[in-house]
């Protein structure tokens, strides 16, 4: 009986532990830029969601495509209606693991690589992405900057606007995670 109680407590502790090592945010900044000689296009979202498991290094990101704000609203509509098909694929996400072992309890900056799956427009791409982990005052900041090839995710661009939209889109992410309650 005693052992049973012990085991239960051990399990409970494990479960509790699992919760304590989660960091999250629902206001990650995700921006993207398309640069061509004809036109520069940029869009910003401040509604990215991210969760990091500091024990395992597992990290997930998600952003609603409709949350991207374009200065030109017509472009925003076309982004959702014609290119991302947000009706069919409402969200873009990344599911991966930080390869380096980091002590998340100590303040500091770490260069890391993250390996995982990037899903945009319903198409998965295995990616290894470089980034930075900045730990300060009990918060964890994740910063990254990477390129996404439009063709990799089967996003078709009509010939007429081919000159205006870059083949590779620069995506930047800046998320400050706090312990998940």
């Amino acid at each position: 009986m005693k052992k049973q109680i012990l085991a239960f407590m051990a399990f409970a502790l494990l479960a509790w532990n699992a919760n304590a090592q989660l960091f999250s945010t629902s206001s990650a900044k995700i921006d993207f830029f398309s640069k061509t000689p004809v036109e520069d296009i940029e869009a910003h979202s401040i509604n990215g969601v991210a969760i990091l498991n500091t024990k395992t290094g597992d990290v997930v990101f998600q952003v609603a495509n409709t949350s991207f704000d374009f200065p030109n609203k017509l472009m925003q509509e076309h982004f959702n209606e014609k290119y991302m098909e947000s009706e069919k694929f409402p969200k873009s996400f990344f599911k991966g693991k930080i390869n380096e072992k980091i002590d998340y309890t100590k303040d500091g900056t770490h260069e890391v690589t993250v390996t995982g799956n990037l899903t945009v427009h319903g198409v998965d791409q295995a990616r290894t992405i470089k980034g930075k982990v900045i730990i300060a005052n009990g918060t964890i900041q994740l910063v990254t900057d990477f390129m996404v090839k439009v063709a990799d995710h089967k996003i078709e661009i009509p010939k007429l606007v081919l000159a205006k939209i870059a083949e590779e889109i620069n995506v930047t992410v800046n998320a400050t995670l706090t312990p998940k309650k």
């Binding site: 494990l14 479960a15 699992a18 989660l22 999250s24 945010t25 629902s26 509604n47 969601v49 969760i51 498991n53 024990k55 395992t56 597992d58 990290v59 997930v60 998600q62 609603a64 996400f93 599911k95 991966g96 693991k97 995982g116």
Partner: peptide
């Protein structure tokens, strides 16, 4: 197994996080 399924669990948690 709880730990092993962590990435998927995190994915499931995402929807709860978003407003």
């Amino acid at each position: 197994s709880f730990v092993a399924a962590a990435q998927d669990d995190l994915m499931n948690m995402l929807d709860g996080e978003s407003t």
